[in-house]
């Protein structure tokens, strides 16, 4: 092995030796698992509409059911096996969000209910909430400005 002189040489060496993630396989698995989860959500929604519930209530029920299934599977230590297989397919829908709250809650139970579960429950989901809500506030402000402007122009 010839001596590696620079950081760049070493980084090239590491990249050459590291096995690549199987991107096509991962994308394919994420695709069909994510699609399956969303299809299940759609089935639940159609069932609720069939039973005469309105659109808002149906979508709330879909969220509740998917969150429950995700939390239940996390508790049984099954969701992380699905996640290892499906990657973004299970993490991007609402199932991933539920998993990201239940998993720290389970992990930190050993530190007590207030300082453990209560304080640490949002360690993974926290940034999602903060930046998601902040982004929606920005969008709302932009909408307010442009909406008001379009009214005054007319």
């Amino acid at each position: 092995m010839k001596p590696l002189d620079t950081k760049k040489d070493y980084q090239n060496y590491v990249d050459k030796k590291s096995p690549n993630s199987p991107i096509f396989k991962n994308c394919f698995n994420a695709f069909w698992v994510g699609g399956l989860i969303c299809s299940i959500g759609q089935i639940i929604m159609d069932f609720c509409k069939f039973r005469g519930l309105d659109k808002t209530l149906s979508s709330t029920i879909v969220s509740i059911i998917l969150i429950f299934i995700s939390a239940f599977l996390t508790g049984l230590n099954l969701f992380n096996k699905i996640g290892k297989f499906a990657g973004a397919g299970s993490l991007v829908p609402i199932t991933g969000f539920a998993n990201s709250i239940v998993s720290p809650a389970m992990e930190y139970k050993s530190e007590g209910y207030v300082m453990g579960v209560g304080a640490k429950m949002f360690t993974v989901a926290g940034p999602v909430l903060v930046f998601g809500i902040s982004a929606s506030i920005l969008v709302g402000i932009v909408y307010l400005i442009f909406n008001t402007q379009s009214i005054t122009l007319v």
Partner: peptide, 15 residues
């Protein structure tokens, strides 16, 4: 638990 993610989190680890 201290440094990375909870074990039950469904994230994918690279090879």
């Amino acid at each position: 638990k201290q440094f990375r993610f909870p074990l039950e989190l469904g994230n994918q680890r690279p090879p």
